[in-house]
Amino acid sequence: MTYKLILNGKTLKGETTTEAVDAATAEKVFKQYANDNGSDGEWTYDDATKTFTVTE
């Protein structure tokens, strides 16, 4: 399945997607991506749209 990440950071904004077997796997990928790019904030997940959002 395709999962989407929306970044609403102070310095990093945008979207990216990943293919993953489940939401937990996608979350690990996205959290590593956000960490690698210095983005940290409040995470939410919408199962209906398969979208993670991180807001700083």
Rank of each mutant, 00 (worst) to 15 (best):
T49G: 03
Y45L: 01
E15G: 08
K10I: 13
T53S: 05
A23T: 07
Y33L: 06
F52G: 00
T17A: 06
L12T: 11
D47V: 08
Y45M: 01
D46L: 03
E42C: 12
N35W: 14
A48F: 10
E19D: 09
T51Q: 03
L7K: 00
N35E: 13
K13T: 09
T17L: 07
N35S: 14
L5S: 01
A48Q: 10
A23N: 05
K50E: 01
N8V: 14
F52S: 00
T55V: 08
V29W: 14
E19P: 04
G14P: 05
N8I: 15
D46M: 04
T49R: 06
N8T: 09
D47C: 07
I6W: 04
E15S: 10
A34G: 02
Y45P: 00
Y45R: 00
Y33F: 11
E19Y: 15
T18V: 14
S39A: 15
E56W: 14
N37V: 14
G9L: 15
L12M: 13
N37A: 13
D40R: 12
Y33M: 05
M1W: 13
T44Q: 08
G38Q: 07
E19M: 14
N37Y: 13
E19R: 13
T53W: 08
V54A: 02
G9W: 08
N8H: 10
Y3W: 05
T25W: 07
K28T: 07
E27N: 04
T16D: 03
A24K: 10
A20I: 02
W43R: 00
K10R: 12
A26Y: 01
T17P: 02
E42H: 11
K28S: 08
A24V: 08
Y3G: 02
D40Y: 15
F52Y: 05
M1K: 11
K31V: 06
E56R: 05
T16I: 15
T16L: 15
T11G: 14
D40E: 12
A26I: 01
T2E: 07
L7Q: 03
T53A: 04
I6P: 01
N35G: 09
K10W: 10
Y33R: 03
K50D: 01
V29C: 07
A26K: 00
I6Q: 04
K4F: 12
I6V: 10
Y33G: 01
G9A: 06
T2R: 10
F30T: 00
S39Y: 15
Y3H: 03
A24P: 07
T2N: 05
G14D: 09
G41F: 12
A20F: 04
F30S: 00
E56I: 12
T55K: 06
T55S: 08
T17E: 08
T2P: 04
D47R: 07
A24M: 10
A48R: 10
K13Y: 11
G41Y: 13
T55P: 01
A20V: 04
E42R: 09
K28N: 06
T17H: 09
E15F: 14
T44Y: 10
D46K: 03
N35I: 15
L7N: 01
F52P: 00
K28W: 08
T44D: 07
G38R: 06
T55A: 06
D46Y: 04
K13P: 05
T16R: 12
Q32M: 09
G41E: 03
G38W: 11
Y45E: 00
D36Q: 12
T55H: 08
K28M: 11
G9N: 06
G41A: 05
Y3R: 02
E19L: 14
T18F: 11
K28L: 12
D22A: 03
G9Y: 10
D36V: 10
D40S: 13
Y45K: 00
D36T: 09
D22Y: 02
T51S: 04
K4Q: 05
A48G: 07
T25E: 13
T53K: 04
E56T: 09
K13S: 09
V29A: 07
T11M: 10
G38D: 07
A34M: 13
G14M: 15
T11D: 09
N8C: 15
Q32P: 02
D46S: 05
G38V: 07
S39H: 15
F30H: 01
D47K: 07
A24E: 11
T2S: 06
G9K: 06
V29H: 10
E19V: 15
T2G: 04
D36Y: 09
T17M: 08
T25M: 10
A34H: 03
K10V: 13
T55Q: 07
M1N: 13
T51A: 03
D36R: 09
T51N: 01
K13N: 09
E42Y: 12
T25N: 07
L5T: 02
T49M: 05
E56K: 06
E27A: 10
T2H: 06
D47T: 07
T16C: 15
M1S: 12
D47F: 07
T49N: 06
D36N: 09
E42A: 09
V29I: 14
T2C: 13
K13L: 08
T17K: 07
T11C: 15
G14I: 15
W43T: 00
F52W: 06
T49I: 05
S39V: 15
L7E: 01
T25V: 06
A26S: 01
T11W: 13
D36W: 10
K31R: 15
K28E: 08
G14K: 14
L12W: 14
K4H: 12
K4E: 03
Q32W: 05
K10S: 11
G14L: 15
Y3Q: 02
I6R: 05
Y33V: 05
E15W: 14
K31I: 07
E15H: 10
M1F: 14
E27L: 15
Y3D: 02
I6L: 06
E15P: 05
A34T: 08
G41D: 04
Q32T: 07
A23S: 08
A34F: 08
W43E: 00
V54R: 03
T55I: 08
Y33W: 14
D36P: 04
F52Q: 00
T11V: 12
D40I: 14
K13G: 06
K10Q: 10
A48T: 11
A24W: 09
A24N: 07
